[in-house]
Amino acid sequence: MGLTPRPESNVVSYDPKGGEGWVTTRLDFLVNWGRANSLWPMPFGTACCAIEFMASAAAQFDLARFGMERMSFSPRQADVLICAGRVPFKLAPVLRRIWQQMPQPKWAISMGACASTGGMFDNYAVVQGIDTIIPVDVYVPGCPPRPEGLIYGIMMLQEKVKRERAADPSIRHEMEPDPTSQLYIPPSAINELSEPFGNAVHQTRSGL
Protein backbone atom coordinates (compact mmCIF):
# COMPACT_ATOMS: atom_id res chain seq x y z
CA MET A 1 0.00 0.00 0.00
CA GLY A 2 2.94 2.33 -0.27
CA LEU A 3 3.50 2.63 3.47
CA THR A 4 7.07 3.67 4.08
CA PRO A 5 8.72 4.18 7.44
CA ARG A 6 8.90 7.86 8.40
CA PRO A 7 12.36 9.33 8.45
CA GLU A 8 14.03 9.30 11.84
CA SER A 9 13.50 12.81 13.15
CA ASN A 10 15.83 12.56 16.12
CA VAL A 11 18.91 12.19 14.01
CA VAL A 12 20.53 15.25 12.57
CA SER A 13 21.75 14.44 9.12
CA TYR A 14 24.45 16.57 7.63
CA ASP A 15 25.35 16.58 4.05
CA PRO A 16 28.43 18.76 3.44
CA LYS A 17 27.55 19.08 -0.19
CA GLY A 18 23.89 19.93 0.50
CA GLY A 19 24.49 23.64 0.97
CA GLU A 20 22.80 23.77 4.40
CA GLY A 21 24.82 25.62 7.00
CA TRP A 22 24.88 24.96 10.72
CA VAL A 23 26.34 26.62 13.74
CA THR A 24 27.23 25.63 17.25
CA THR A 25 26.43 28.05 20.02
CA ARG A 26 25.82 28.29 23.72
CA LEU A 27 22.19 27.71 24.64
CA ASP A 28 21.90 30.70 26.96
CA PHE A 29 23.46 32.91 24.31
CA LEU A 30 20.74 31.88 21.91
CA VAL A 31 18.01 32.24 24.53
CA ASN A 32 19.26 35.66 25.61
CA TRP A 33 19.49 36.77 22.00
CA GLY A 34 15.86 35.84 21.57
CA ARG A 35 14.76 37.42 24.83
CA ALA A 36 16.67 40.65 24.33
CA ASN A 37 15.16 41.21 20.94
CA SER A 38 11.57 40.47 21.86
CA LEU A 39 11.01 42.34 25.10
CA TRP A 40 7.33 43.00 25.52
CA PRO A 41 6.79 46.10 27.61
CA MET A 42 4.06 46.55 30.16
CA PRO A 43 3.57 50.31 30.35
CA PHE A 44 2.72 51.52 33.83
CA GLY A 45 2.22 55.16 32.97
CA THR A 46 1.04 57.49 35.70
CA ALA A 47 2.22 60.92 34.60
CA CYS A 48 3.86 62.98 31.89
CA CYS A 49 6.60 60.37 31.37
CA ALA A 50 3.88 58.17 29.89
CA ILE A 51 3.39 60.77 27.16
CA GLU A 52 7.08 60.53 26.27
CA PHE A 53 6.74 56.77 26.39
CA MET A 54 3.91 56.97 23.88
CA ALA A 55 6.08 59.18 21.71
CA SER A 56 8.81 56.55 21.90
CA ALA A 57 6.37 53.87 20.83
CA ALA A 58 4.94 55.92 17.98
CA ALA A 59 6.21 56.14 14.44
CA GLN A 60 8.98 58.70 14.86
CA PHE A 61 11.05 56.69 17.34
CA ASP A 62 9.34 53.33 16.86
CA LEU A 63 10.06 50.92 19.69
CA ALA A 64 9.15 48.12 17.28
CA ARG A 65 12.72 48.35 16.03
CA PHE A 66 13.79 46.86 19.36
CA GLY A 67 11.30 44.02 19.33
CA MET A 68 8.78 45.94 21.40
CA GLU A 69 6.18 45.73 18.71
CA ARG A 70 3.57 44.44 21.08
CA MET A 71 2.59 46.64 24.00
CA SER A 72 1.34 44.30 26.66
CA PHE A 73 -1.40 45.87 28.71
CA SER A 74 -1.63 42.78 30.83
CA PRO A 75 1.16 41.91 33.25
CA ARG A 76 0.70 38.20 32.52
CA GLN A 77 2.04 38.51 29.00
CA ALA A 78 4.75 41.08 29.67
CA ASP A 79 8.52 40.89 30.00
CA VAL A 80 9.53 44.37 31.06
CA LEU A 81 7.64 46.73 33.32
CA ILE A 82 8.20 50.34 32.33
CA CYS A 83 7.10 52.53 35.21
CA ALA A 84 6.67 55.99 33.73
CA GLY A 85 5.72 58.64 36.25
CA ARG A 86 5.33 59.25 39.93
CA VAL A 87 3.79 56.57 42.10
CA PRO A 88 1.77 57.70 45.11
CA PHE A 89 1.64 55.55 48.21
CA LYS A 90 -1.92 54.60 47.36
CA LEU A 91 -0.64 52.98 44.17
CA ALA A 92 2.29 51.19 45.84
CA PRO A 93 0.46 47.92 46.61
CA VAL A 94 -0.97 47.95 43.08
CA LEU A 95 2.45 48.29 41.50
CA ARG A 96 3.82 45.48 43.65
CA ARG A 97 0.87 43.26 42.77
CA ILE A 98 1.38 43.92 39.07
CA TRP A 99 5.05 43.04 39.40
CA GLN A 100 4.16 39.81 41.18
CA GLN A 101 1.71 38.94 38.41
CA MET A 102 4.41 39.12 35.73
CA PRO A 103 5.94 35.74 34.90
CA GLN A 104 9.68 35.17 34.93
CA PRO A 105 11.85 36.23 33.23
CA LYS A 106 10.96 39.84 33.90
CA TRP A 107 12.71 43.16 34.12
CA ALA A 108 11.80 46.65 35.21
CA ILE A 109 12.70 50.05 33.85
CA SER A 110 12.18 53.08 36.05
CA MET A 111 11.51 55.91 33.65
CA GLY A 112 12.08 59.47 34.76
CA ALA A 113 13.09 61.28 37.92
CA CYS A 114 9.85 60.68 39.82
CA ALA A 115 9.75 56.93 39.34
CA SER A 116 13.46 56.67 40.16
CA THR A 117 13.68 58.92 43.21
CA GLY A 118 10.38 60.65 43.82
CA GLY A 119 11.76 63.65 41.96
CA MET A 120 10.40 66.99 43.05
CA PHE A 121 7.54 65.31 44.90
CA ASP A 122 9.29 64.96 48.22
CA ASN A 123 6.08 64.98 50.23
CA TYR A 124 3.68 62.90 52.25
CA ALA A 125 1.99 61.22 49.28
CA VAL A 126 4.64 60.03 46.82
CA VAL A 127 6.86 56.94 46.91
CA GLN A 128 10.50 58.00 46.90
CA GLY A 129 11.63 55.73 44.10
CA ILE A 130 9.88 52.59 42.91
CA ASP A 131 12.92 50.53 43.86
CA THR A 132 11.54 50.68 47.38
CA ILE A 133 8.71 48.48 46.06
CA ILE A 134 10.08 46.37 43.20
CA PRO A 135 13.56 45.59 41.90
CA VAL A 136 14.62 47.89 39.09
CA ASP A 137 17.08 47.02 36.33
CA VAL A 138 17.54 50.30 34.49
CA TYR A 139 16.94 53.84 35.67
CA VAL A 140 16.31 56.43 32.97
CA PRO A 141 16.97 59.98 34.20
CA GLY A 142 15.14 63.02 32.90
CA CYS A 143 12.05 65.02 33.60
CA PRO A 144 10.64 63.56 31.47
CA PRO A 145 13.32 61.67 29.51
CA ARG A 146 13.28 62.23 25.80
CA PRO A 147 12.51 59.16 23.68
CA GLU A 148 16.22 58.90 22.88
CA GLY A 149 16.85 58.56 26.63
CA LEU A 150 14.30 55.80 27.02
CA ILE A 151 15.65 53.99 23.97
CA TYR A 152 19.16 54.23 25.41
CA GLY A 153 17.82 52.69 28.62
CA ILE A 154 16.17 49.91 26.64
CA MET A 155 19.42 49.19 24.81
CA MET A 156 21.20 49.02 28.18
CA LEU A 157 18.58 46.57 29.35
CA GLN A 158 19.16 44.49 26.23
CA GLU A 159 22.87 44.44 27.06
CA LYS A 160 22.01 43.27 30.55
CA VAL A 161 19.73 40.54 29.25
CA LYS A 162 22.41 39.31 26.88
CA ARG A 163 24.88 38.91 29.74
CA GLU A 164 22.70 36.63 31.84
CA ARG A 165 24.05 33.11 32.24
CA ALA A 166 21.99 29.98 32.64
CA ALA A 167 24.59 28.78 35.13
CA ASP A 168 23.72 31.64 37.47
CA PRO A 169 20.03 31.23 38.39
CA SER A 170 20.30 33.62 41.33
CA ILE A 171 19.39 36.53 39.10
CA ARG A 172 15.90 35.13 38.73
CA HIS A 173 15.30 34.43 42.42
CA GLU A 174 12.61 36.60 43.90
CA MET A 175 13.76 37.45 47.36
CA GLU A 176 11.70 38.73 50.23
CA PRO A 177 13.42 40.94 52.81
CA ASP A 178 15.61 38.71 54.92
CA PRO A 179 16.16 39.86 58.52
CA THR A 180 19.13 37.49 58.84
CA SER A 181 20.91 39.10 55.89
CA GLN A 182 24.01 41.18 56.49
CA LEU A 183 22.50 43.95 54.39
CA TYR A 184 19.25 44.16 56.31
CA ILE A 185 18.65 47.32 58.29
CA PRO A 186 15.66 47.33 60.60
CA PRO A 187 13.15 50.16 60.14
CA SER A 188 14.01 51.67 63.53
CA ALA A 189 17.66 52.05 62.48
CA ILE A 190 16.58 53.60 59.20
CA ASN A 191 14.42 56.11 61.04
CA GLU A 192 17.35 57.01 63.24
CA LEU A 193 19.75 57.32 60.31
CA SER A 194 17.41 59.46 58.26
CA GLU A 195 16.98 62.04 61.01
CA PRO A 196 16.98 64.99 60.85
CA PHE A 197 16.59 64.82 57.09
CA GLY A 198 13.15 63.48 56.32
CA ASN A 199 14.11 62.39 52.85
CA ALA A 200 15.21 58.82 53.31
CA VAL A 201 15.61 58.14 49.60
CA HIS A 202 18.97 56.51 50.13
CA GLN A 203 17.82 54.58 53.18
CA THR A 204 14.53 52.87 52.46
CA ARG A 205 15.90 50.65 49.73
CA SER A 206 17.95 48.44 52.00
CA GLY A 207 15.73 45.43 51.77
CA LEU A 208 12.56 46.81 53.29
Binding site: K90, A92, R96, V127, T132, G198, A200, L208
Partner: peptide, 12 residues
Protein backbone atom coordinates in the same frame (compact mmCIF):
# COMPACT_ATOMS: atom_id res chain seq x y z
CA UNK B 1 9.13 58.14 58.55
CA UNK B 2 9.46 57.09 54.94
CA UNK B 3 9.99 53.49 55.94
CA UNK B 4 6.85 53.45 58.05
CA UNK B 5 4.83 55.19 55.34
CA UNK B 6 5.94 52.63 52.80
CA UNK B 7 5.26 49.74 55.14
CA UNK B 8 1.74 50.95 55.82
CA UNK B 9 1.08 51.64 52.13
CA UNK B 10 2.22 48.18 51.07
CA UNK B 11 0.11 46.60 53.78
CA UNK B 12 -2.97 48.04 52.11
Amino acid sequence: SRAEQLRQALAA
